[in-house]
Design a protein around this nucleic acid. Structure first.
Lengths: 127, 127
DNA sequence: CTGTATCCATGATGATACTG
DNA sequence: CAGTATCATCATGGATACAG
């Protein structure tokens, strides 16, 4: 009849929910990079485009809206001519930074041990 | 003319590459959950399906192949009747666990402060 | 400069059925 | 039980043009 199913000792799905919660925020190819680019100081829309040359205005706009909706990023209109806007991480958004650091740390380990098996690393092929 | 572009103090794209490396591994709705389900002990194909009721056999198979190819998961055929197979994290795969923990930690914080704004959390709607 | 609107390509996933 | 094949669907992202 085959082997019986062993009960999972990891609690099955319970701890995966917060995991999914965070990964939903980091979803897409660009959200983590947007957060990273805002980690040091506020940046304007055009500056972010410059930081990530391959992102399209459409996607950058979409990601910023998404992060703003979730309270991770704050938008501040500037009274300049022509009008511009500045984006900054909120305190809640800053809570993501340690996790992002952890991911980058693992990434460095993986690259050191294997080279870069992630062939389709779209956002930043160089570096 | 508008404001001049300020130079990014975060190093622009450099640190994003290891980040992308790791996120490429965790890409998709299921890879992180597969890794989590293997974190405590080896699991068989059918056990993993049971741990993640909403995953399809096709996708589970694809994720396992992917993780196996990258050296994060090891497959061990079992000489049972009928034949079965067991999957386990490799030491390299275990390096992802701290990062996954960090993500889950942030997820718990976000849920505590906001409830669960991640409306489309497909993998585990309950929990 | 700061976005938004279309159109289109691609990739990830689910459902189902089928093989060994 | 352990996978694979096929088909259809949906979200993400790029390119381009356009609006405030």
């Amino acid at each position: 009849m085959g082997l019986p199913l062993r009960k999972s000792t990891v609690g099955a799905l319970m701890p995966s929910c917060p995991l999914t919660e965070t990964l939903t925020l980091l979803r897409g190819a660009w959200a983590p990079n947007v957060i990273w680019c805002l980690s040091a100081e506020p940046r304007r829309f055009g500056e972010l485009r410059h930081d990530m040359p391959r992102i399209s205005a459409r996607v950058l706009s979409a990601r910023l809206r998404e992060l703003e909706t979730r309270g991770l990023v704050a938008r501040r209109p500037l009274k300049t001519s022509p009008p511009s806007a500045e984006y900054a991480l909120t305190p809640l958004g800053r809570e993501l930074l340690p996790a992002i650091d952890a991911l980058a740390h693992v990434g460095r380990t993986l690259i050191r041990e294997w080279g870069s098996p992630a062939t389709a690393a779209r956002p930043i092929p160089t570096g």
